[in-house]
């Protein structure tokens, strides 16, 4: 779609949607500045929880661990999920295709407890038989997350591939472009929004997963949700609110800077084109 202008109804949908999404976020940001330990009782302004957060080594290392695993799982899931989507949508009929499609959607269906348990048992069996993985930790969590995230990516990417005009690719091929060349120059740019969407979904899924990670983690590989969950027994600590606030701020800053930079580049380019015209 092009800039047809965004109507009144669309604006309303957008604004009310964002209000729904952000009300809880603003509330938890607000309470990160609460003096009291009780998250829901306001007792005055304070930034002491931010200090406490940085002193909490366990939580800080869990944050890094989670971000690292989420980044690597999302990237791997996008690679594997995209391959799977191409095979599903593009390869016509091939032997074992039904099983292939079933297999890709199945991880979505499995309840987390069972996925976690089954992978745990697999890793235990493998380590007894082959000596690998000698110890469970970030690698096993990464494998588990990649496996269920690639299902999400495959669904998103295949939905885009299904409706995409193949004449472009064929035209390029007729003009003598190689298969790989066509893929990188034409197919990839067209599915790029789906890849981005899939990566973002996979990243959040991995970042949020508690149950599967609890099963397949080992000593010293505690992820953020595990720390959060084990501490909510005593009520959500405002430290966690502070952490959420920082995460949201950091990501929104990074996004905004990237957006601003790209926007500027675009404006410069437009200006150049315009001045070229004027000459």
């Amino acid at each position: 779609m092009t800039n047809a202008g965004i109507g009144r109804w669309s604006w309303m949908a957008l604004v009310s949607g964002f209000i729904f999404l952000y009300v809880p976020i603003f509330i938890l940001m607000f309470y990160s500045f609460n003096e009291s330990r009780l998250v829901t009782v306001w007792a005055g302004f304070s930034i002491k929880w931010y200090g406490e957060l940085f002193r909490d080594e366990q939580m800080m290392s869990a944050v890094w661990m989670s971000l690292k695993i989420a980044f690597l799982s999302a990237s791997m899931a996008v690679v594997l999920g995209t391959m799977a989507a191409i095979a599903m949508v593009r390869f016509g009929r091939f032997r074992g295709k039904t099983m292939f499609t079933g297999m890709i959607t199945a991880p979505l269906v499995m309840p987390e407890v069972i996925t976690g348990l089954s992978l745990l048992l697999l890793f235990v069996t493998l380590s007894q038989a082959l000596g690998w993985p000698a110890e469970r930790g970030s690698v096993t969590i990464w494998i588990a997350h990649t496996t269920f995230c690639m299902a999400y990516v495959a669904v998103v990417v295949s939905s885009r591939l299904r409706e995409f005009d193949r004449s472009l690719e064929e035209a390029a091929m007729d003009l003598g472009a190689s298969r790989l060349g066509v893929f990188f120059r034409i197919t990839l740019p067209i599915v790029a929004p789906a890849l981005l969407a899939g990566w973002l979904l996979a990243f959040t899924l991995s970042l949020d997963d508690l149950v599967i990670a609890s099963f397949v983690s080992g000593p010293g590989s505690t992820t953020l949700p595990m720390v959060v969950f084990s501490s909510v027994r005593l009520g959500v600590s405002p430290k966690i609110n502070a952490l959420a606030t920082l995460l949201v701020l950091a990501v929104s800053m990074a996004t905004f800077i990237a957006w601003w930079y790209m926007r500027r580049q675009e404006l410069i380019r437009q200006k150049e084109i315009q001045s070229a015209f004027n000459k």
């Binding site: 990243f203 949020d208 953020l224 995460l247």
Partner: peptide, 12 residues
């Protein structure tokens, strides 16, 4: 902006 809220922990 749609995805951002999900980057805080699900539990909180």
């Amino acid at each position: 902006l749609v995805i951002l809220p999900s980057w805080t922990s699900f539990l909180i």
